[in-house]
């Protein structure tokens, strides 16, 4: 019998997801949600959506099932050096500004947050850029925190193993320098892996979100599309607070932080607008 999710059930499920994860699913996504729900119901050997909802509300005290369901909902499509122009602005403009300012004050820490890191391509890309662009990087205390809501994908990210399509935009020199390759599988080197710490953070959970502070750079690209206006605002407001003065934020190319929080200022780099906290 074909699995169906009626509108009332969809709305109850969507409300629950929104409460727990801040992700808003509109009714046009009912089919998408239904497919994933069907798998979870089968995995738990339950009869229907009603039983699943009761399970989530009353029997999933530790939140493991909710986490499984959330893992299945997030789309993990990314690759190394995605949105190259924006990364160029980071590498050639913003990074230089921060590094020079910090050198002049004797502060040699760099803290970067890749929020919604998926399978790790973005934080590892950032690590590679730091290696290439920051002179005497070994003298710096560098922390790259990479977070995601999906536990499975974080595990994959920690492995640092990728197919060819993930590395298609990696400059050939970097591919040689920072990856080992065997039978079409690319593995990031330990030198780069060790620069990144992966953490499970739900951006809608204020207890997890609010302690994340004191960053020089925050990357949150193509994550906020999952959020509604209110949730998105809360996350971006927190990013503002989480940045050090002079720190930069990078959202998706089509997203504007200053429209969400007007306290962000804009500068023009050679090929991109960049947003920062004054």
């Amino acid at each position: 019998m074909r699995f169906e999710l009626d509108v009332d059930e969809f709305e109850r499920l969507a409300d629950l997801i929104y409460q727990k994860a801040g992700i808003r699913f509109e009714q046009k996504k009912i089919y998408y949600l239904a497919k994933r729900l069907e798998k979870r119901i089968a995995a738990l050997d339950l009869a229907n959506t009603e039983e699943y909802l009761r399970h989530l509300k009353f029997r999933d005290h530790q939140g493991y099932e909710l986490q499984e369901f959330l893992n299945s909902l997030t789309v993990n499509e990314t690759y190394f050096f995605r949105d190259f122009n924006q990364l160029l602005s980071f590498a050639e403009f913003s990074l230089d500004q921060i590094v020079e300012r910090k050198k002049s004050t004797g502060d040699q820490t760099l803290r970067i947050w890749s929020a919604g890191c998926s399978s790790g391509e973005e934080p590892y890309t950032i690590a590679i850029i730091l290696k290439e662009m920051v002179e005497n990087l070994q003298r710096w205390n560098v922390e790259i925190i990479a977070s995601d809501i999906d536990l499975n994908i974080l595990e994959k990210a920690r492995q640092g193993v990728y197919m060819r399509r993930s590395v298609k935009d990696v400059p050939p020199d970097y591919l040689t320098r920072y990856f080992t390759q065997k039978a079409g599988i690319f593995k990031i080197t330990d030198e780069i892996k060790e620069m990144v710490t992966f953490k499970h953070i739900n951006l809608s959970d204020r207890k997890q979100l609010r302690p994340c502070r004191d960053f020089d750079f925050i990357f949150c690209r193509n994550v906020l599309i999952y959020f509604d206006t209110i949730s998105r605002k809360k996350v971006v407001d927190h990013y503002y607070l989480a940045l050090n003065n002079g720190g930069f934020i990078f959202l998706g190319s089509s997203e504007s932080p200053s429209r969400i929080n007007p306290a962000f200022k804009i500068k023009k780099s050679a090929n991109h607008m960049v947003y920062y906290k004054e």
Binding site: I230, K233, D237, Y240, L241, N261, P262, A263
Partner: peptide, 15 residues
């Protein structure tokens, strides 16, 4: 005085 806080208050009042 903070623009960020004012903005958060305005968003809050909208709700």
């Amino acid at each position: 005085e903070s623009v960020a806080v004012k903005n958060a208050i305005i968003s809050g009042l909208q709700r």
